[in-house]
């Protein structure tokens, strides 16, 4: 039963997949393929239009924009990867413990989650940066702290549902220890929807990193990062709009690609999961 319009949709997924793979490759191999040093200032060649030497032109300090975009992919996507790894680790362990053990432990952990769920990312980030100073580490910490509770909740819900399966009862009756039951029978049911959700959130978290850096709270200049690049170019928006457009385009494409990929994954795995998240 292929719904109408499926070919167009699968084409968009293919494009999104290619784009996402491209971004990941750039983030991984960026330092090998950059045409110029992304930090090299060359005041003689400021604001150059795109040429063969500088495919996307140069910025207000004469730095090669393409090189900075490629290096920025590493900063942005790399920090998103760290955020996701931490969020998944926290969410899986807290949600898994909560769901498997139940009772008081569950109640305490879920109230803790409730507290974190009430804090918006930007408010928490502003608070942390006010208290601890600006920097990428604090931004990453703020995003992790404001997102892990969603994952813990979802993991717990999945665990609770999977726990009622007969084969979990069968494993319990067979004397299997709880950790083995979790790893063998519960985790395989938790991972696929979680992977879909995480992919869907890559774009969302990249926006947070770039957004906070744009505000001057995260990555500090001269480190190449997409949000920082937009902030740098802000002053020249009316005269040199391309300086804003290039990093903006990179952010938009990355977010769209990962979103589309996550959407497709979610549709394949569990169409009901994220619908209840109400974001």
């Amino acid at each position: 039963m292929t719904p109408a319009g499926a070919p167009a949709r699968s084409r968009s997924v293919a494009i999104a997949g290619l784009l996402a793979a491209g971004f990941v490759l750039l983030a991984l191999l960026g330092s090998l393929v950059v045409p110029h040093d992304p930090l090299a200032v060359d005041l003689a060649h400021r604001f150059e239009a795109p040429t063969l030497a500088h495919l996307l032109g140069t910025d207000h300090l004469g730095r090669d924009i393409l090189s900075r975009l490629i290096a920025g992919a590493r900063t942005t996507l790399g920090s998103v990867l760290v955020v996701l790894a931490l969020v998944l680790a926290l969410g899986l362990s807290v949600g898994g413990l909560s769901g498997m053990l139940g009772g008081r432990i569950d109640a305490v952990l879920m109230r803790l989650c409730d507290v974190f769920l009430t804090v918006p990312t930007f408010v928490l980030a502003l608070f942390m940066i006010g208290a601890l100073g600006t920097g990428l580490v604090n931004v990453v910490a703020a995003i992790v702290l404001s997102h892990w509770a969603w994952y813990a909740r979802i993991v717990r819900g999945l665990v609770l549902e999977l726990k009622t399966r007969d084969y979990v009862l069968a494993a319990r009756i067979a004397g299997a220890p709880r950790l083995a039951i979790f790893v063998e029978h519960v985790l395989p049911g938790v991972v696929p929807p979680l992977a879909a959700l995480a992919t869907l959130d890559i774009g969302h978290m990249a926006l947070h990193v770039a957004g906070l850096s744009f505000l001057g709270l995260g990555v500090q200049p001269p480190t190449p990062e997409w949000g920082v690049m937009i902030n740098d170019a802000r002053a020249f928006f009316w005269t040199r709009p391309l300086l804003v457009i290039w990093p903006g385009l990179a952010i938009a494409l990355a977010v769209l690609a990962f979103n589309r990929l996550g959407d497709a994954l979610r549709d394949r795995l569990d169409p009901t999961l994220v619908a209840g998240r109400g974001l």
Binding site: R165, R172, A176
Partner: peptide
């Protein structure tokens, strides 16, 4: 469980992962 007493459940279809 599993040491002194083994069990066979009612519905084999759902008792296996």
């Amino acid at each position: 469980r599993g040491r002194a007493v083994a069990s066979v459940l009612q519905a084999p279809r759902t008792a296996f992962n």
